[in-house]
């Protein structure tokens, strides 16, 4: 397949970005979309040009790192997949493909097609409370969770935090992500074990009229 790619290039967050047009030739319909970009990047490197920056990690649809807005749709024209699972057979020879980064005030562009998704981590941290103890793996039954709650929580955990909902939403809303994470966390006793300890300490302070300064 021969394709024309219109790709958003932007030096850094502050720089003015623009679309640059590239031609790629002899792409196999069986290659993935990211492999097609790898091929393009190799050509650019061979011509001593800067490769196109784009996010990816697992390339098997589970990590949520890949994030491309392809021909007007987050993760491209296929249904229910991430960009890394998109294959070139979804396109036709001679197609013009426009590739943009996620666009949202909450996702500033780092470079080219890469955006900063710290906002998602901040949201998760704002609602969560865990202590991370070093040492061995904690005992599996030390915090009992009902099967029903753990199943529902796991369902909500299907959200891999890719950001496509924000990228797609006409209002650039993170509601879908937040609701998934709220369900995922609220169903677990996360923080409650610690909360209990804190209330234990408060109780101790009241009972013994002393503060714990350790």
């Amino acid at each position: 397949m021969n394709l024309t790619l219109k790709i958003w290039r932007q030096e850094n967050e502050k720089a003015q970005g623009k679309f640059v047009t590239y031609e790629v030739k002899d792409i196999s319909p069986d290659s993935s979309f990211l492999e097609m970009l790898d091929i393009l990047n190799e050509q650019l490197v061979n011509k001593i040009q800067l490769p196109i920056a784009f996010d990816h990690d697992c390339r098997e649809g589970i990590c949520g790192m890949c994030s491309l807005y392809i021909n007007g749709r987050a993760h491209g024209p296929d249904e229910g997949i991430t960009t890394c699972q998109l294959h070139m057979r979804k396109f036709s020879d001679g197609d013009i493909i426009t590739i943009e980064p996620w666009r949202s005030r909450g996702f500033p562009i780092i470079k080219d097609l890469m955006v900063n998704r710290d906002a998602f981590d901040n949201i998760m941290q704002s609602g969560g409370y865990i202590s991370v103890n070093t040492g061995g793996i904690p005992d599996a039954n030390s915090i009992p969770i009902s099967k029903e709650n753990s199943d529902l929580s796991m369902d909500a955990a299907a959200c891999i935090g890719c950001g496509a909902c924000v990228a797609t939403c006409k209002n650039s809303s993170a509601m879908l992500f937040v609701s998934a994470k709220v369900s995922q966390f609220a169903l677990l006793p996360q923080g409650r074990t610690e909360a209990k300890i804190i209330s234990n300490i408060a109780r101790m302070n009241r009972e013994f009229l002393c503060a714990n300064f350790s």
Binding site: E100, R103, S172
Partner: peptide
């Protein structure tokens, strides 16, 4: 607020499957 949430618009947008015309 919604307009401010996406300062830079997409060049190509296809929202036919994700939202109705009326909702937009």
């Amino acid at each position: 607020q919604n307009q401010k949430a996406r300062p830079e618009a997409y060049a190509v947008v296809d929202q036919s499957e994700s939202s109705s015309w009326a909702s937009r």
